[in-house]
């Protein structure tokens, strides 16, 4: 990044840190949603953006993280700070199992994506029948008004806001460290040209498996947050295909494979949705499906005009990153 880019990033961080002090409850709740999508988009980006593995079933890891941590809390009284570890481990176990199936048996490209959808769908239908977790009727975390217990992630919206903000910052930092590591270079090589990567010594299987492991673990953490923020889990929602797509849209709009892209994308899409709701309600034209229609049109416009994402374009225009040829 250029000096200008770093200053802007620091400013944005500062703004987000003080936003709840100036904004009302509504602003905080919208920003929490934005940051959640930024976080999960960042996690998904590790697989698709860094390693070229298109997962279309990322709700699987969100859901596993959510259900595992919620079950531990409700049934055994284990708080989320401890529960997030098994939540991540379960997601990693399932993720690497899918990865193992895919990479050992040569399930590539689109077919790998289908595999990820299939597992998410199996989870959606399967969790409907696990009565221990509420089945299709939903699984609920106990809610007590006015309780402030950060150790169990129980408290005001403000608590959740700062937790998700910390997660976004953490995921961004981790992604940056990974991308500049030996592993990160190998991921990018595998994404670009697997055959050539293998010829320069990259173990394709290991590189892809680590990408799946990191991505699923991070995503599961997003699931833990979701469980304790919303306090209710329905397989139909948590594991839905639509949700999987919602997760990947910010990264696509912002710029796949970039560090800032998923965050910027979330800051474009969620407010866009909110603004559409507001405008349609105010204008009295709120027909069913109209919001989705406008939302879809806006998406098409962005993707058609900025196919590589908004961030790479913005960064070039505002000189936020070094351009090729400007030296390292």
């Amino acid at each position: 990044m250029t000096g200008r880019g770093l200053v802007l990033l620091a400013l944005a961080g500062l703004l987000l840190a003080v936003a709840p002090l100036v904004g009302d409850r509504y602003v905080v709740s919208v920003l929490t949603t934005v940051l959640w999508f930024a976080y999960v988009g960042q996690a998904w980006n590790v697989m698709m953006g860094f390693s070229g593995l298109l997962s279309l079933g990322h709700t699987l890891y969100v859901g596993l993280g959510a259900y595992v941590s919620a079950a531990l809390f409700v049934h055994y009284g284990v708080g989320p700070w401890a529960g997030m570890v098994p939540a991540m481990l379960v997601a990693v176990a399932v993720g690497t199992f899918i990865g193992f199936l895919g990479f050992r048996f040569g399930v590539k490209g689109v077919h790998f994506s289908l595999l990820t959808i299939a597992f998410a769908e199996v989870a959606r239908i399967g969790f409907d029948h696990i009565q221990w977790l509420g089945g299709s009727g939903g699984f609920f975390l106990p809610v007590e008004a006015g309780v402030s217990d950060p150790l169990n992630l129980r408290g005001s919206p403000l608590l959740f806001y700062y937790v998700i903000l910390a997660l976004v910052v953490g995921a961004l930092a981790l992604s940056r460290v990974l991308l500049h590591s030996r592993l990160g270079y190998q991921w990018l090589a595998v994404r670009e040209e697997p055959e050539a990567a293998e010829a320069v010594g990259v173990d394709l299987f290991r590189a892809r498996m680590t990408a799946v492991a990191v991505s699923s673990a991070l995503t599961a953490l997003g699931g833990v947050f979701q469980a304790f923020y919303f306090n209710n889990l329905f397989p139909e929602q948590v594991f839905s295909m639509g949700r999987s797509i919602e997760i990947i849209l910010p990264a696509i709009v912002g710029g796949i494979g970039t560090l800032i892209g998923p965050i910027l994308g979330a800051f474009i899409l969620t407010p866009l949705g909110e603004a559409l709701t507001f405008v349609l309600e105010e204008s009295g034209f709120d027909l069913p499906g109209l919001k989705q229609l406008f939302y879809g049109v806006a998406l098409v416009v962005i993707v058609v005009f900025r196919p590589e994402g908004v961030w790479p374009w913005l960064a070039r225009r505002l000189r936020l990153v070094r351009q090729p040829g400007e030296g390292a």
């Binding site: 030996r182 990018l188 670009e192 040209e193 990567a197 320069v200 010594g201 990259v202 494979g257």
Partner: peptide, 16 residues
């Protein structure tokens, strides 16, 4: 070539 990577990054992958 690793098309989206820079020339230097391409060779770094080799050196790694």
């Amino acid at each position: 070539p690793f098309g989206e990577l820079t020339v230097e990054e391409n060779v770094v992958v080799g050196a790694l």
